[in-house]
């Protein structure tokens, strides 16, 4: 079946709300899923992979465990980027926006591809971001130029022993400067693939024109989650709607 971006976002917000997310968190999480799905990054598959976890645990956030002049380390406490991605990016940009560069690591976190949407949004305030993480046996690297609407998304052969659940984010004035300043961290192995912006654009345009294809089972799962925040209707409650 097909859904619109707007109704998908609305449904996801309510679904995340039903999972205990707070306002702010559920807005951001919904936006992250929708962005991935509408730009061809399998947002629904990634959502499915985390729903069970979110459904069986209380929402938890990251803790700041280390801070030193533009270097931050957050412990994700095994949570999802859906819950700690915004605070991580905000922490990095709070430093970078004052003219310096920032390096931030989130350790012990999952579903890191969702960070894409947060980086794109944060880049609209004239900041650049580079981020990378280990995905199975390769490395994903994302670069976002200031005010860019789409990221450069590439995959590389691993050439260092990366913690499988770590995400590194660098923020500063522009991508070239970040590449130079943090060269020691950004030496990747051979590139094994990229995901052209042109395809992201086409995916997005198609999503808008034709709607977004969603598996009926997932849509029903979201409906089930949404139903948790609905209140049983009674004759008395109808009075609270004007009857």
């Amino acid at each position: 079946m097909k859904v619109s971006k707007n109704e998908l976002t609305a449904s996801l917000k309510k679904a995340f709300e039903s999972l205990g997310f707070q306002p702010g968190d559920y807005y951001d999480a919904a936006d992250m899923v929708v962005w991935l799905e509408t730009h061809g990054f399998d947002g629904f598959d990634r959502l499915l992979s985390v729903l069970n976890y979110l459904n069986t645990t209380s929402p938890s956030h990251a803790d700041l465990i280390e801070e030193e002049a533009g270097k931050f380390v957050l412990d994700g406490n095994a949570t999802s980027i859906l819950l700690c991605g915004s605070e991580a990016v905000d922490l990095a940009r709070s430093y970078a926006i004052q003219g310096s560069s920032a390096r931030l690591e989130v350790i012990n976190c999952y579903n890191r591809t969702f960070i894409l949407q947060r980086l794109i949004k944060a880049a609209q305030r004239d900041l650049a971001f580079v981020a990378y993480w280990r995905q199975q046996d390769y490395c994903v690297k994302v670069s976002v130029s200031p005010r860019a609407e789409l990221p450069v998304y590439q995959t590389f052969i691993l050439n260092e022993q990366l913690d499988p659940q770590m995400l590194r984010i660098f923020s500063g004035a522009n991508v070239a400067q970040l590449e130079e300043e943090y060269a020691e961290y950004l030496q990747m192995g051979a590139m094994i693939g990229d995901y052209p912006m042109e395809i992201m654009k086409v995916c997005y345009t198609d999503s808008l024109d034709q709607g977004i294809e969603i598996d009926v089972t997932l849509w029903e799962t979201l409906d089930d989650l949404v139903s948790r925040i609905l209140v049983k209707s009674t004759e008395e409650s109808r009075a609270g709607a004007g009857d």
């Binding site: 306002p23 949404v226 139903s227 925040i229 609905l230 209140v231 049983k232 209707s233 009674t234 008395e236 409650s237 109808r238 609270g240 709607a241």
Partner: peptide
């Protein structure tokens, strides 16, 4: 304020009197 299961209609409840406070809209 809460959403009713009837078409998600927004409704107004009375605190500690009507059901649904734990599902309050923000």
């Amino acid at each position: 304020w809460y959403r009713s299961e009837e078409k998600m209609e927004p409704r107004l409840g009375r605190t500690h009197i009507d059901m649904g406070m734990e599902k309050e809209m923000p």
